[in-house]
Nucleic acid binder design. Structure first.
Lengths: 205, 205
DNA sequence: GCCGGTATGTATCGACTCGAAACTATAGCG
DNA sequence: CGCTATAGTTTCGAGTCGATACATACCGGC
């Protein structure tokens, strides 16, 4: 346990930070560190990118299960997204379907094997840890994370993703809702899915 | 804007989640997404791994600025860490120093060019976004993230990182503190640095 | 109907990451 | 002294990623 004994050199350890945002600097680092720890590609069946893609296609609604939508979500190029999708199709976790109304587009469905695979998602540990947090902490965390994500996406000029239930395009009914963007009716379960055309409702910002 | 009009297929969109942790599932996904967005390796001078390494060596105390410590922090292997360090040394952002008390070990120092580079850290956007959050949200976020990180690290059996100021090995004095682990005195600035031997103090868990 | 502009998706290339394994050198212990 | 553990490096193959080029299909104006 015990190591060496050094008594000077202290000035070496004074880092030049330059600004007074040390606390938030810690937080940003912490978020990145936490995410990396949670994904931990080591010794799992899939890579981090493949897990993210599989998760996305399992959560995206029927307008958003395309390679392009995933590339926007994942903040990467269509070329890269195409490769990831291809690898998952080869593994039998995704299945291609033709889009009847647009011959260019490819719709992707998570196969049963894909759903089974998602049960071993390395993110499970983080989910359990978060679920174990006290209720009030968890609530605040959720709000803070959503705000930070929305703000950062706006700053970076990238699209925000969210569920139709929170989308300003949607007018909610009793059992269904009408989406102005896609001009279609959505069922309750659909409204809990990701949408590429998500537009956050105006909350206090 | 408007897309196609589909009226059926709704049942296709009912995903089999299997468990009742939908809310925390969203949160875990959100953390990963936020971290990815924040790092955004695209069109920056360094890769994500290089940025993380540079940040680590700028924040780690004098017992922790080694390739091994970084590999543990980054949850990777010593081999991979060695490559990242090598690339940063080649770029002139890190500098190797001999450890007088252990000829196997290499100490790394961030050069002035390295500190300058850190001013362009892509994490800056996230830091600004977090800094703009309301005070109470930010406070709670900080607490929740630290708890989640500590809990996840324990679950994964990986070491936790933190500053000496929060470490149970340290007995604090007025201007200095004594670290039981390294058997050495620490100055105030040093106590704000990362330590590989961090052991969280017993807070309500 | 046709043509030009645009959007979707794929293939290829080079640079990089990552984990695994093999290897060298040093430390520490009996 | 020898044995084992640790620090660090190197090499290899698989995968990621961004950039580019490309084929196909949609969509507007004419």
């Amino acid at each position: 346990m015990a190591r060496l004994r050094i008594t000077c050199l202290a000035s070496m350890c004074i880092r030049k930070r330059g600004n007074g945002t040390n606390m938030t600097q810690d937080m940003a680092d912490l978020i990145v560190h936490l995410a990396r720890l949670a994904q931990n590609t080591g010794r799992t069946e899939l890579t981090a990118a493949q897990w993210t893609a599989l998760r996305f296609f399992a959560r995206a609604n029927r307008f958003s299960r395309t390679p392009s939508a995933f590339s926007e979500f994942h903040a990467t190029t269509r070329g890269t997204a195409s490769q990831t999708v291809k690898s998952l199709v080869t593994l039998g976790l995704l299945q291609r379907q033709n889009n009847a109304s647009d011959a260019r587009s490819t719709l992707l469905e998570v196969t049963q094997a894909g759903h089974d695979m998602l049960c071993h998602d390395p993110l499970g540990d983080l989910r359990r840890v978060l679920a174990a947090l006290p209720e009030d902490l968890r609530q605040t965390l959720s709000v803070a994370l959503q705000r930070a994500t929305t703000d950062l996406a706006r700053l970076r000029q990238v699209p925000t993703f969210g569920t139709c239930a929170d989308c300003s395009h949607c007018k909610e009914g009793t059992d269904t809702a009408y989406c102005h963007c896609t001009e279609s009716m959505l069922t309750k379960p659909e409204m809990a899915s990701f949408c590429i055309d998500f537009q956050p409702t105006n909350r206090a910002s």
